[in-house]
C-alpha cells in the first residue's frame, strides 16, 4: 500500500516540522527576553555576562528548528523564471531531482555539523565568555538539518506518480 505509507510519512514529516517549530518559537521568545533582560540589567546594575554568545546559540536553534516548517510551508523563495516554459514531465522530473539533491545536501550538512560537534568535544573548546562546552547546541543544529533532510525526502516521494501531494505552483 504505497499511498497509505506515503500519507503516513507525510503526516510524520508534518508533525516533526511542527514540533521543532514550537521549539524554534520558544527560542525566539527566549532570545527576546534575554536581550531585554540584558538591557535592563545594564541600565540598573551591570550587564548579563555572555548575552552575545547566548543570543548566537539561541538564534542557531531558532533557524535550525524552523527549517522543516519553512520547507513544509514553501517559505523558501525560488526564482524559476523559465520553469513554466519547460514541458510538464521535465518540470516534474526537475522537481523530483531538486528535492532529492536538496535532501542529500541537508543530510550532509547534518552529518558534517555533528562531526564538527564531535571535534568540539575532542578539542575541549569552550565558548568565549561563559566558557560553556557548547557542543549540545551544535548537535541540536545537526538534528534540525537531519529533520529538514527527512522533510525534503518526503517532498521527493510526493513528486513520484500517484502520491499524496503533488507540486504545482
Amino acid at each position: 500500500m504505497p499511498t497509505t505509507f506515503s500519507t503516513r510519512l507525510d503526516a510524520l514529516a508534518e508533525t516533526l516540522a511542527k514540533a521543532l517549530a514550537i521549539l524554534a518559537g520558544i527560542f525566539l521568545i527566549a532570545t527576546m527576553l534575554l536581550a531585554c533582560a540584558n538591557m535592563i540589567l545594564r541600565a540598573v546594575h551591570e550587564p548579563l555576562p555572555g548575552t552575545v554568545e547566548l543570543v548566537g546559540f539561541f538564534g542557531a536553534m531558532l533557524t535550525a528548528f524552523s527549517l522543516g516548517l519553512a520547507q513544509r510551508r514553501r517559505s523558501h523563495i525560488f526564482v524559476g523564471l523559465l520553469t513554466p516554459k519547460l514541458p510538464r514531465p521535465i518540470r516534474r522530473g526537475a522537481d523530483a531531482l531538486q528535492f532529492l539533491v536538496s535532501c542529500a545536501f541537508f543530510a550532509l550538512a547534518g552529518i558534517e555539523t555533528a562531526r564538527w560537534g564531535m571535534d568540539l568535544i575532542r578539542s575541549g573548546e569552550l565558548s568565549s565568555t561563559l566558557r560553556l562546552a557548547y557542543h549540545p547546541f551544535v548537535f541540536a543544529a545537526s538534528l534540525g538539518c537531519m529533520a529538514m533532510a527527512f522533510v525534503l525526502f518526503v517532498d521527493f516521494l510526493n513528486t513520484l506518480p500517484g502520491h499524496a501531494r503533488t507540486e504545482e505552483h
Partner: peptide, 8 residues
Amino acid sequence: SYLPGVFP
C-alpha cells in the same frame, strides 16, 4: 585566545 580550552 579565541579558542578557550583548546590550548591548556
